[in-house]
Design a protein around this nucleic acid. Sequence first.
RNA 1: UGGGGCGUAGCCAAGCGGUAAGGCAGCGGGUUUUGAUCCCGUCAUGCGUAGGUUCGAAUCCUACCGCCCCAGCCA
Length: 559
Amino acid sequence: MADKPASKPDHFIQQIIRKDLQAGRADNIVTRFPPEPNGYLHIGHAKSICLNFGMAEEFGGDCHLRFDDTNPEKESEEYVNAIKEDVSWLGFQWAGNVRYTSDYFEQLHAWAVHLIEAGKAYVCELSAEQAREHRGTLTEPGKNSPYRERSVEENLDLFARMRAGEFADGACVLRAKIDMAAPNINLRDPIIYRIRKARHHQTGDTWCIYPSYDFAHGQSDAIEGISHSICTLEFEDHRPLYDWFIENLPVPAKPRQYEFARLNLNYTVTSKRKLKQLVDEAYVDGWNDPRMPTISGLRRRGFTASAIRQFCDMIGVTRSDSVVDMGMLEYAIRDDLDKNAPRAMCVLRPLKVVLTNYPQEQVEEMRAPGHPNREEFTERVLPFTRELYIDVEDFREEANKKYKRLVIGKRVRLRNAYVIEADEAIKNELGEIVEVRARVIENTVGNDPEDGIKPKGVIHWVSAVHNLDCEVRLYDRLFEHEAPDAGGRNFLEHINPNSLEILSNCKAEISLAAASSEQRFQFEREGYFCLDSKHASPTRWVFNRTIGLRDSWAKMDQG
RNA sequence: UGGGGCGUAGCCAAGCGGUAAGGCAGCGGGUUUUGAUCCCGUCAUGCGUAGGUUCGAAUCCUACCGCCCCAGCCA
């Protein structure tokens, strides 16, 4: 009774929607995720996707996917396709067809004409530079454009000729006639149409004038019957303009805009411009490089959609600027993979162990569970032979009692197999350990040693004759600085030169030969890994480390 | 120095006049054939600061301080 599981409290958007429903201000909740197809989606977009689709789902409404494609020069079909794939992969389904702001260009144009006819818009021939001078500053009001008082007829004619392609890019624009002295700069006669003689990925050469974001967004929301238009905080200043258009146009609905704080994650950048730069200048291997905070990068890295959704749920939705610790994202993926990833053993840095008392030709088939507490996972078979590999890190000639691995004269458990005891380290001429001689303690598979001397710890291993050669890629954060783009510094200066380490001589248990693309595993005692979708082939195994296991030993060993 | 926002623990975040939820990280302990997982415990006499109103203030009022956004024919 007293400790009934507390349900998560509503965030402010949920509170608004609940009130709107109760007050009858809305009966059908419709949201939209409105990306511009000018780059790939990243973890910050995941927050918006989860919010928009989540609200529709929670309140029995719909969420649309609408490409905000009003700037053909920066957009492309490649991005459209990648975005659709990422949204689907995250587990969301948009209502109806994919929509495009460009679907509404004809209607938007008609509304622009409507504003002209109402004396609320005019064609302005000020150059970009002159327009800037007329705009005023943050503290000084702007000056009216000399073209502001043109007749309706002249404006109609000019706008028609803009559409007809009679003017060069930049020769003139259509502006809303609002107030050049408004303290909110967005209201100082904002541009609503500009000339762009560029081929559009959806409409081809149909148009040479394109509506601005401010003119297109709210009206598109109205056309689609969006009830709650959710965007990020930097658009808050645009809300008066959003409302102005809705009030001054014969739109079929009156959507409302609400703003929330965008996601910031430490040790990374979430800016499409910067991510594009990393790709274009080859700091990474494409938008889906496993170090990228893009949805496709995280996917290739081994993240699951449900971990990303859980993360978005953990961080909440508020209006305060915040920087979420990367540790939260790491927690979300470890939590998912711990419960759901099958276990396997893989030796990353092999060191040969010869079991001197084990018969040369003998092969025993050890059995290992696919998961420590999920019996439905299929059991693995691990061939055990006289020669094995263990990890270099798991052997020391001598060590203090805190080191719970193999030490000369001490015992250790080989996971799912025998307890062994080390006798001798064989070194090369450089003094490097190249082999360890050890002995199997009899009758210790599933049992403690009969002499009562228990092993210090458990280490993983793989047969030196029955194993899978593979490559493992270890990733570290892409940036060394927790706020790479802070302080006016160039974020590229903070790139971590050691963000990728390729281990090419790894030895995995043979069951891993059947791994499929992006399939995820826990390599016991190491971390979570997945088969790389780009570099792996039927004859080549490349595993990406998604994230290591929590490692309290690493901390102890330092200090 | 105009306008719009935001300040609750190292981080995220509840709180909506009745005496500071929860999560991440950390720390201590228990279980463990993964130094993982799991379990238990611990972690704000304090809510940007200073006043005020009130029996009672993180919540209301006033002033101040700090941070973010806006002067694209980008979104």
